[in-house]
Amino acid sequence: MTQYAMVIDLNRCVGCHACAIACKAEWGVPAEYHRSWLRRLGPAMTPDGMSYTYFPGLCNHCDDPVCVPVCEADPEEKVFTDPKTGKTMTMEVRATYKHPFTGAVLIDHDRCIGCEMCVDACPYGARYMDYTLDEPKADKCTFCMERVEHGEVPACVKTCLAGARIFGDLHDKKSEVYDLVHNKGAIRLTSSEVVIGPNVYYIGNPRDLHLLKETCTPHKMNAGRTSRRAMLAGLHRRGGNLLAGAGLFGAVAGLVDLTSSDSNSEDKSF
């Protein structure tokens, strides 16, 4: 089975932000949000010398994606197809799930109820609520699975002028990502508190990796539910039950909108 992964080479990355913009263009991501982002780090002193580097970030398509089980949408049976073999498998999933054949963590937008639980749960800040929509939905990087299925590389990889983004199947021993992860010391941003198996890796010189780890490693698992959120989710649920039937769904969406003022999905500082 496949686990798609990305290795980002900070020795090559020049911090041009092209990846972030190409992603926006490809998926029509609203200006204020990012599926793929770039944070500039430094110049700062590290034990290995001065570093001025970047944090090109995106959803890690984690092995144990904590964003998935918190989803409030109803579970439904879904048929998954292995893009390589055509084999199928049926699974009961909520609106967001980890694809059993590709390892990509995805969202069924039609089924997302906009409860924002997954956005809160992700310790990497990789998800955002799209409040530009009439019915706000969660969104994030899909590893461009839609493109990959059509034989294309992810949009950010295609535009990366430094060739810094290497994409492939981590379970394929002949892949470049496998080599980089298993033989070339690619690292991931994990801490003793956050161990959920991210599939985005970084390589670089010691000083850049030091600064990256120091400033961008998450150290807190979000309970995923501040009391306010939990309350809103509860309201939402009840309102949904009551109002959806009465055809007054818009009123509920109004309630959900209240969260936008304290939603900080853009804040990548952990």
């Binding site: 263009a25 490809e26 998926w27 029509g28 991501v29 409030e72 949408a73 109803d74 579970p75 937008h109 039609d110 089924r111 997302c112 109820i113 799209d130 929509l133 009439d134 019915e135 939905k137 969104d139 461009c144 839609e146 493109r147 059509h150 294309e152 949009a155 649920r237 949904g240 039950n241 959806a244 039937g245 769904f249």
Partner: peptide
């Protein structure tokens, strides 16, 4: 859990994606 009737929600898919059968810029 709670159920939403199908088709109530506006599609969140960006206009660009909707324009052709294929997603994104494809």
């Amino acid at each position: 859990t709670w159920k939403i009737p199908k088709g109530v929600l506006a599609s969140p898919v960006p206009a660009a994606t909707m324009a052709s059968g294929l997603p994104g810029s494809l």
